[in-house]
């Protein structure tokens, strides 16, 4: 539980009809992901109101820049899926409860449904989704192990799990079984593939660095 909360906190001021400041005037924010408190502070400092109409923003997704028009309330998840056609991240709960939408925001796993596209764009944070890893013809090590262990049944949770596991392996190339469970505790799988997910992550870790 605590893990889920932590991951979802990249912006708890999300889901509003309009944004107050929140660093939309670029420059105000450094590269890191802000805590809610920081976001709040930034909002108070620059009482600039944007929206509720559409804004022109630029999202950095998988190494490419995309210009798009979004209302400030549009989540990063909906922007990726509906506007950019990046449908690897899945929409399941839309409320930061399941992890199916997990993407890496500046390298850190976050729930894309709990971040606002305009905010991410304003902070110029790079977004990485499952589409940026291996391709079906050239899977990376983690993906190979995922397939080998049969760690996807319906597969609807898979993108989110793989991104959470990717963040773990980049950060901790040789995680303990407990660390694997901890890092993936913000993701749910209704088909119950967890044991094979653990096995895939552990097998990928054994095969060494560069696995993700």
């Amino acid at each position: 539980m605590s893990q889920r909360k932590r991951e979802s906190n990249a912006n708890e001021l999300s889901r509003r009809g309009f944004l107050k400041g929140a660093g939309l005037g670029a420059g105000a924010v450094a590269t890191g992901v802000m805590t809610p408190a920081e976001t709040l502070l930034a909002a108070e400092k620059k009482d600039e109101i944007r929206g509720p109409g559409e804004l022109a923003v630029t999202l950095r997704v998988n190494g490419r820049r995309h210009r798009l028009q979004v209302e400030p309330r549009v989540t990063l998840l909906d922007a990726l899926r509906d506007r950019l056609g990046v449908t690897g991240p899945k929409k399941v709960c839309d409320h930061g409860e399941c992890g199916a939408c997990t993407v890496l925001l500046d390298g850190r796993p976050v729930y894309a449904c709990m971040n606002l596209a305009a905010d991410v764009a304003a902070r110029n944070l790079p977004v990485e989704t499952v589409e940026n890893l291996g391709t079906p013809e050239h899977l990376n090590t983690l993906q190979q192990e995922w397939v080998r262990q049969d760690a996807s049944q319906c597969g609807f949770c898979t993108s989110g799990f793989i991104m959470a596991a990717t963040a773990l392996l980049r950060d901790t190339p040789h995680p303990s079984p407990e660390q694997v469970r901890e890092q993936l505790s913000g993701n749910l799988c209704r088909c119950g593939t967890y044991p094979k997910i653990f096995a895939a992550v552990e097998a990928a870790a054994r095969r060494g660095p560069g696995s993700a």
């Binding site: 899945k90 079906p136 993906q143």
Partner: peptide, 19 residues
């Protein structure tokens, strides 16, 4: 034998109805 649709699922390319 690992399933033939494994690769398309682990790369996020499998297109579900929602996608």
């Amino acid at each position: 034998i690992p399933r033939i649709d494994g690769p398309i699922k682990v790369t996020g390319r499998a297109r579900y109805t929602y996608d």
